[in-house]
Structure formats: C-alpha cells, structure tokens
Design a protein around this nucleic acid. Structure first.
Lengths: 182, 182
DNA sequence: AAAATATGTCAACATGGCTGACATAAATAT
DNA sequence: ATATTTATGTCAGCCATGTTGACATATTTT
C-alpha cells in the first residue's frame, strides 16, 4: 500500500460528482473542511520526503523557510512566528547550525541578539523545498483559469485570524522586498 | 504575549500592500506558501483549543471527524485515510471509545470487522468543532464576493495529488450522502 | 549599581508518530 | 476439515517535537 491514498473500499461506489453545494445555513461546510485537510497534507508531503532523507522534520523546514525569507531575523521573531517555546526551537536550530544550514551573527547594535541567516547550503535546501511546493501550486493554477492565483491569495488571506492578518501580510511583503534586494 | 501573533518587530516597517505578484517563472510562489501555512494554522487552532480542554489533541479530532462523516466505516478505511499505523490509531481510538465518543460494532457480514460510529456525545463534539471551522470559512466567504465557495473548492481540489483526487472527491461525496440520510 | 532583556541550557514530561513481534477470531481457500 | 489469509488488537520500545520550570550569561537600559 502506498502512502497518501484514500479509502475507497467498503460502501457502494457511485461516480464522482462535484461536491454538494452545502446550501443550508448553519450546516458545516464539510467540503472545504475536508479539502483543506487533504490539500494541506499533500502540500507538506512533498518537502517531508526530502527532509526525512536528511534526518530533518517539518520543524526544521519551518525554521529554514522563515530564516531564508527573513535573513537577519532575531530568534525572538522566529519564536513569535512559529509560536513554540525557545526550548523547542533551540533543539532544532542547534542541529541546523551545527550542520551548516543556518548561521548566527551577533547583532550590530544590540550584541545580545543572535541574528539568523541561511548559509548557501541552507538557501539551496530552502529553495529546493519551496520549488516542490511551487510546482504543485503552479500545476494547480495551470489547471484553473487565469485569476486563480489572485483568488487563492484572497481566500487564504480571508481565512487568517482578522486580528493577525495585517501582521502576516506585512511579514510576507517585507520578506519579498528582502529577497528581491538579496 | 498571546499566541498566534506574527513578528512585526525589527526591520523597518512599511504600510502593508497586497503581496507581490510573483511574476517571474521558476520563482517560488512565496505568498501562497506562506498564506497556506498561516491559514491552516488558524484553521486548526480553533478546534485545538476546545480539544485541549478535553485532554484531546489533533489526532482525536481527525478520528472523530472522519468517523462522524462516515458512520460504519471500517478501521482499515480510517487507517487508509489518516495514513498512520494501526498502533498509533489504536491508542487514540481506545481513548475515545472508553470515554464514550465512539462506538464499535461487529460487522454484520464479516464479523471480524469493528465498524466505527460516533455516539450522540461524539456527534455533538464533532459538530461543535466543525462549527468553529465553518464559522471561519463562512466569515471568509462573506468577506469575499459570491463565488468564493466555488473558487476555494476548485483551488483546494487542484492542490491535491492528481492520482488521489478522484478518491478524495468520492469520499466527500459519499460522506455527504451518508450524512443527508442519517 | 540594579533591573530588564535576549538568548541559551538542563531536566523532566506528554503526545503522537514509528517499527517489530505476536495474538485472536473469522473468513476463505485448498 | 484443515490450512491460510485477513481484520483487528496489543505489548514493548524508539523518535520527533511540543510542553513547563528553573536557572545561567551577556548586554542593554534605567
């Protein structure tokens, strides 16, 4: 049995139609709930395979991703984004520093800070992983019509906590500028 | 510091604009990658809070969700959907059976099978959790124009592994019929 | 000089994945 | 009828990654 299949066994099968319209108010939007589950599972599945060969997990991916996107960020910033404890981060971060994927520099103004950067090796891995996910995304956008990117962006943005949305958009916009400069 | 915030500290801030268009071919679609991360984090965050008060985790949620949606499913089906080992499932499942959220019945034709059902208590919890997620989804659809539901469904579907997509759609469609009958 | 801040570390624990080995009952095949 | 396969469960232990609490160190701020 290969991974990432879905049970089709049991219960009589009928031809697959489009999911039900979910009209009635107050009824759960089962289709979106379940599609999000499966879409996200596949979305993170591609990187997971590559990472596991390196002895890394999803936690390493998250660290690498955000450091790559926000070079020079503080440890505290990363903790805030990942929403984990410094002890959890510490373990993972230490491995990536020891293995030469991430590099820490003392802050220029504030020498208590350990600013985080990816090494060339780290950047290569980050781009490889992002490439896998981008391939999936562009394939999806290719299947859908033009405007799919914008529609997806609007949907995903609207799904984020309202009181956090501005911060997320700022983060993305700032990282974009950083990578374009870099 | 509250949970689920995003670092805004450091680096000079500029007013939040829409994310960059990500035009160039071969460049990662950072915006979708990151929005998916944050959207999913918030999406599962609501249920997580409720579950933790019951001593349950995300694993329990997944089990409860799929059993509720597919009453009478076999253990093997659930394993196939969740893509975990029977030992992992066993632990979680046992707790939910012991605490009266899920019920197992011997199969009618094949008496080796332990068909899975939610109890009324289990259904209530499943609906409560789905309600939280639905609230977020309908809020999002409300912010976006009409057609948002359809657009989201198409996007998410296109993000699923092509060789698995049919199976997922069948699963959703079948569960819809089951819940409409039930 | 004292207090607050940024970071790191030690120790212990919980959850939820995993593998491997083995047990049981029931269905199926020979 | 016996043998094999199948569906499920269970024991034991390992690993990754989250948690809390306590404490250490360097540096900045008051």
């Amino acid at each position: 049995m290969s991974a990432k299949t879905v049970a089709t066994a049991g219960l009589s099968e009928r031809p697959a139609g489009s999911a039900a319209p979910t009209a009635a108010a107050g009824e759960p939007t089962w289709d979106i709930i379940e599609l999000l589950f499966f879409a996200y599972r596949d979305f993170v599945g591609d990187p997971d395979e590559v990472l596991s060969k390196l002895g890394f997990g999803r936690a390493h991916h998250r660290v690498l991703h955000f450091v790559n996107r926000n070079p020079g960020m503080k440890v505290a910033d990363l903790l805030d984004i990942l929403n984990i404890t410094k002890q959890s981060l510490g373990r993972v971060l230490k491995q990536m520093v020891d293995q030469g994927f991430i590099l820490q520099k003392e802050g220029a103004q504030d020498r208590r800070q350990r600013l985080l950067y990816v090494t060339p090796k780290g950047e290569a891995l980050a781009l490889k992983l992002a490439g896998l996910q981008t391939a999936r995304i562009t394939r999806a956008f290719g299947e859908l019509g033009p405007g799919a990117h914008e529609a997806a962006r609007r949907f995903l943005t609207a799904m984020i906590d309202t009181d956090n949305r501005e911060g997320v958009l700022r983060l993305i916009a700032r990282a974009d500028r950083a990578s374009k400069r870099g």
